[in-house]
Design a protein around this nucleic acid. Structure first.
Lengths: 192, 192
DNA sequence: ACTGCCATGTAACTAGTTACATGATTGG
DNA sequence: CCAATCATGTAACTAGTTACATGGCAGT
């Protein structure tokens, strides 16, 4: 078979598992709760899994010996479970990074989907949707720029990804604005 | 509740169902097989569901009376099932288009994910991944440009989305190339 | 002769979501 | 005093995937 990794049960984990493993690969001992917040920093280019999913992945990784768990009792709240990556976990993660096939990015663009089916609605609704999208993309852009400056000193690779994200959201703004303009023009020509 | 549509069982369908309904809203009578090919044209901005999923959605939509089925017997192969959208289907689809909340686009960018965890691999591997991504994005760009010229006469909205896609892939090329450059520079500075 | 297209379908599985439950602590 | 944060967990569900099965027909 073209991809032997796919059949290796030690390596063939879901994407979320690798994301979790990757976050742990920075070397910190973190809880599921911490991880969820970390994962939120990745939402710009990788959707954030549900909280319950993160806990589920941690259990799976623990099962496979890719992470180690240490429990810390607390008063008045559930015991904190702190995770660190194991040697095996590091190895698995690196194997994946270095050798696993890299699929194309997957996009589920609900705004573009609406535009695609524009013939079933009216230009005003489309403009509204597009304007909202522009506003949202600008927000993301600002957040990312801020995030990047914080990352730049310590975390060069995440900073590079933040930069990438800025490029992406700029393109979103431009594309949506262009679509609005096109919409306006066709409306104009219709009045003649 | 803020979103009454969410609780309306006639309207709260999965995204794939709306995509299928939307494709049918162009008015053609098509088979599941045809639909799959149509859906592939949307892959640039909306991931293509598995074939089995499309058939499943069609059954669901039939159940709800949003599409009508006509069977055409064939020799030597399974009977062809042809679907058309019903009045109820049109209404449901338009309600969704006009009133359902539009979520943010969801991205699962496996290339950016690799770059994010760059500290666990080596620049050469990253460069390889990035170069592949650039090549792939250029291909998509060419395909989309070609697709758009075909759409422009008859299908203005899909053509607009194709244009959007071109903007997206251009940004991908630029971002990935910029990342490569950054990688090169840090490598240079490391030799000092 | 072989590849790819046509055309559907099912079974088994996995990934992922939503919603709920608990309850102290901290900050405005 | 209220909201947000900390911190986990479970149950029920849905969406979606992979892999397989069938088999004729058209084109190179």
């Amino acid at each position: 078979m073209a991809d032997p990794l796919r059949d290796d049960p030690a390596v063939n984990l879901p994407a979320t598992a690798y994301a979790v493993l990757g976050l742990l690969s920075f070397g910190n001992e973190v809880s599921g709760y911490d991880l969820r917040k970390w994962a939120m920093n990745m939402r710009y280019f990788y959707w954030s899994p549900a909280q319950s999913q993160i806990y589920a992945e941690l259990r799976r990784l623990l099962d496979k010996g890719l992470v180690a768990e240490r429990t810390e009792e607390q008063r008045g709240r559930p015991a904190k479970r702190l995770y660190t990556i194991t040697e095996a976990g590091q190895a698995t993660f690196q194997t994946w990074l270095n050798h696993a096939e890299v699929g194309p990015p997957q996009l589920k663009h609900s705004v573009a989907l609406r535009l695609f089916f524009g013939h079933q609605t009216n230009p005003d609704r489309l403009r509204e949707v597009l304007r909202n999208h522009v506003a949202w993309a600008r927000e993301q852009l600002a957040e990312l720029a801020e995030l990047r400056t914080r990352l730049e000193s310590d975390l060069p690779y995440p900073a590079m990804v933040a930069k990438w994200g800025e490029s992406y959201f700029s393109a979103e703004v431009a594309a949506a604005e262009y679509a609005i303009k096109t919409l306006d023009q066709t409306a104009d020509s219709a009045t003649f």
